[in-house]
């Protein structure tokens, strides 16, 4: 089994409301205890758009960002992992572990 197939996938949480304004996207995790919206702009909003409802790997997202920005994938990955982890802590995305 390749490394890519062993990597956990990330997907949007099912109960997230989303509405855009210009370059910003406002999100609300509706099953969170507190009803507090989150605003993402710039690269944060771009990353959010790359997270599908069906799931993808961080490697894949990093590769897309790398091809768009010219920054090396390895440089992107660490920051990306931190950011997506913070999204998970806010109930906006879910990580699906592989068997």
């Amino acid at each position: 089994m390749s490394d890519a197939r062993r990597e956990a996938t990330v997907r949007r949480a099912p109960s997230v409301a989303e509405t855009p304004r210009d370059e910003t996207v406002f999100l609300l995790a509706m099953d969170n205890a507190l009803c507090v919206p989150v605003a993402l702009a710039g690269s944060a909003a771009a990353i959010w758009q790359l997270i599908p409802t069906m799931g993808t790997t961080l490697t894949h997202i990093a590769e897309v960002l790398s091809s768009e920005s010219g920054v090396a994938t390895v440089e992107i990955t660490a920051h990306l992992r931190d950011f997506v982890t913070s999204l998970a802590s806010q109930g906006l995305v879910l990580f699906d572990a592989v068997d």
């Binding site: 409301a17 509405t19 304004r21 210009d22 370059e23 910003t24 406002f26 609300l28 509706m30 009803c35 919206p37 605003a39 702009a41």
Partner: peptide, 17 residues
């Protein structure tokens, strides 16, 4: 301003919630 939730977006999100 970029991060401030405007009333228009707030109404949509709060209605959904």
């Amino acid at each position: 301003a970029e991060y401030t939730l405007g009333r228009s977006e707030a109404v949509e999100l709060a209605t959904a919630w």
